[in-house]
Simulated scan of single mutants.
Amino acid sequence: MDWETIHKDTAPVVPPRLTDYEEARAAFTWDRARGALAGLPGGGLSIAHEAVDRRAVSQRADKVALRCIARDDAVTDANVPACASTTRTHHSSPRRPAVPTFLVAHAP
């Protein structure tokens, strides 16, 4: 399916973090990437922790992390702690499905 490109007519409220892709690519190292991750308390890595849980206790925890717009245009917003609660519930479920039932998009 083809999608129409969305063109923005205003400057971004928050400046983009990646302004020079080639420079970022040339400077990339796995050690630096690993250093940017918080890691789980006690060791290990979890994408849910990196994407959601560590932000749930940050200064930006009250920001909208996920906005869902239904077919009837009803809008539901969730902040980071609400998403963290959902990911913890999903992760700790003894019968969790093989495919995630809740996806989180992090807004910078």
Rank of each mutant, 00 (worst) to 15 (best):
H49F: 13
D72Q: 11
M1S: 15
G42S: 10
C68D: 11
C83A: 14
A61P: 00
G35S: 14
D53Y: 10
A27F: 00
W3D: 02
V80D: 00
A33Y: 10
R71I: 04
T101R: 11
A105M: 03
A27G: 08
C68W: 11
M1G: 15
R60V: 01
E4D: 11
V75A: 04
G43W: 04
T10F: 07
D73W: 10
R88N: 07
T5K: 09
A48S: 14
V80F: 04
L103N: 07
L18R: 04
V99Y: 04
Q59V: 04
E23H: 05
T5A: 14
C83D: 06
P97V: 09
T87I: 15
R17Q: 12
R95L: 06
P97A: 08
T86M: 14
S85Q: 14
W30F: 09
T19D: 01
R25I: 03
W30G: 02
A51V: 12
I69P: 12
D73A: 12
C68A: 07
R71H: 08
R17M: 04
E50L: 05
R95I: 06
A26Q: 13
P97W: 02
P97N: 07
R34W: 06
A56Q: 06
T5P: 04
T29R: 02
S46Q: 09
D9I: 08
H91N: 12
E23M: 01
A84P: 00
M1E: 12
A56P: 06
A56S: 15
H106L: 08
A61Q: 10
V64D: 05
T5W: 03
D20A: 12
P15T: 08
